[in-house]
C-alpha cells in the first residue's frame, strides 16, 4: 500500500517533470527542474480553488524545483486545467531531525494569580495574546525588560 503510494507519487512527479521538460524545451525558461529520487513520504492534498494560472502555463502538471529548507526539502506541484490552477500539491521530504510537538510533553503550569513586581520576579517572559508595539509601553513584558537590563 505504502509502496504503491510512493510509486504513484513518483510517477506523478516524473510525469510532471516530463511535462516540464517539454515545457522548458519549448519556452526555454532556465529554472527548470527534474525530480530527485528521494523517498517522498507525504503529499499534502490539493487546495486552491479558482486561482488563475500565470499566463505562461498551458494545461498540464508542473513540478517546481525541490527546494532545500530548514524544515526539510519541499517541492510544489501544480495542475493547470483550462488555464486555471486546479490543484497545488506539496510534496515534502520532512527533515528527520525535526522533532514532534510532544517532546516537551510533560510540561505543566503552576497556577498563581498575582500581580508581578518586576524587581522581585523570577519571570523573564510573558505569554499572552498578541501585543502591539503601540501598546507595549507599560505592559508586563516591558516592565520585566526594564527590570534587570
Amino acid at each position: 500500500m505504502y509502496k504503491k503510494i510512493i510509486a504513484g507519487l513518483l510517477s506523478l512527479a516524473i510525469a510532471g517533470a516530463i511535462v516540464l521538460d517539454v515545457f522548458y524545451t519549448f519556452f526555454g525558461q532556465p529554472k527548470a527542474t527534474t525530480t530527485t529520487n528521494k523517498n517522498k513520504t507525504t503529499t499534502n492534498s490539493a487546495t486552491s480553488s479558482s486561482t488563475t494560472a500565470p499566463n505562461q502555463y498551458q494545461d498540464g502538471t508542473y513540478t517546481g524545483e525541490a527546494t532545500e529548507t530548514e524544515y526539510g526539502d519541499v517541492q510544489l506541484k501544480i495542475n493547470v486545467v483550462g488555464g486555471k490552477i486546479t490543484t497545488i500539491d506539496v510534496l515534502k521530504y520532512p527533515n528527520d531531525e525535526r522533532k514532534s510537538e510532544s517532546i516537551n510533553a510533560k510540561v505543566l503550569p503552576t497556577y498563581k494569580q498575582e500581580a508581578l513586581s518586576a524587581q522581585s520576579s523570577h519571570i523573564q517572559q510573558v505569554s499572552g495574546a498578541t501585543e502591539t508595539y503601540k501598546g507595549f509601553k507599560g505592559s508586563l513584558q516591558d516592565a520585566l525588560n526594564q527590570a534587570e537590563d
Binding site: 503550569p109 494569580q113 508581578l116 523573564q124 510573558v126 508586563l140
Partner: peptide
Amino acid sequence: WEIGIENPNNLQQILATYHLNNGAI
C-alpha cells in the same frame, strides 16, 4: 526560563507560570 501566562482579564497579572529550558510558547 520562567514564563508567566497573562490573565486575559487583567493584563498586569499572570495566572500561571511555566518553566522551560528549550522550546516555544
